[in-house]
Design a protein around this nucleic acid. Structure first.
Lengths: 132, 132
DNA sequence: CTATCATTTTCCAAAATGAGAAAACGATAG
DNA sequence: CTATCGTTTTCTCATTTTGGAAAATGATAG
């Protein structure tokens, strides 16, 4: 129990992981989006996500080549939900967090097909594939 | 803000500090009592207590030679109260935490005058000073 | 099956953290 | 003032954590 509690607290004890949690507050994102927003090496992002998952704060979903992470719904870890609630209520006006949200909005809108390809629902636009 | 949040999370991200918080749940204790219950070197306990204080989770009170710590009442850190609430609701049946409470009860009752001398109200017993 | 792409794992160096001995500090008692 | 006692600060060492390059893995496209 103590160890379980400690694992969640440790998962929160890092600015990058806190930013990831806030980034995922509104819904799931794929790893490459998170990597792009935070400006991290893929390996780094992946490890932070793994830590959050092990702590029971996030869950994973695979869709083809892409892996999506989102807040854990039913916690394997009994403390995770409480901590997530706390994260949700905190840092609403934090400069870094709001800036991350802004960058995410840009990335989600503009670079959908060039970043991770296929955006959330592969909007069937006229240009199917741009290839010079 | 992010940094402030991180400081509190980091303070919780250590089993010894979690045990200290649970130990102080029912009221203040002096450093030597905490040291005795946890079996730590004084320097180690002192540093953990300092970390919890800096994070806004604990406050300090000096009484003569002794220093007492207790849960922070009005938080300098806006996140501290929420985290303390979470700690209060957690680990109620954790083996380590309950064992710590048991040891504390023993120490508080038996070794009052030999541990930190003068227990909570210096019960005016007949033996004022034992000196061979 | 092979090539390719997103993600994860492995490996390594740099930085942060935790523990205790010894010295420094603060306060009381004589 | 001096001695003593509880606590805090150095200082040092071992361990853990973090971040990224490179290699390994998983999955799709051809």
């Amino acid at each position: 129990m103590l160890e379980t509690f400690e694992t969640v607290a440790k998962a929160l004890a890092d600015p990058t992981r806190i930013r990831i949690l806030k980034l995922l507050e509104r819904g799931e994102l794929c790893v490459c989006q998170i990597t792009a927003v935070l400006g991290l090496a893929p390996a780094t992002a992946s490890k932070h996500l793994a830590a959050l998952k092990v702590a029971g704060l996030l869950q994973q979903r695979r869709d083809g080549k892409w892996v999506y992470y989102r807040w854990a719904e039913r916690a394997l870890n009994p403390y995770a939900q409480a901590f997530l609630g706390l994260v949700g209520e905190s840092l609403k006006t934090d400069p870094t967090v709001t800036e991350d949200a802004r960058v995410l909005a840009q990335i989600s809108a503009v670079a959908l097909s060039s970043l991770c390809a296929r955006g959330r629902d592969a909007m069937p636009t006229t240009d199917t594939e741009t290839m010079p």
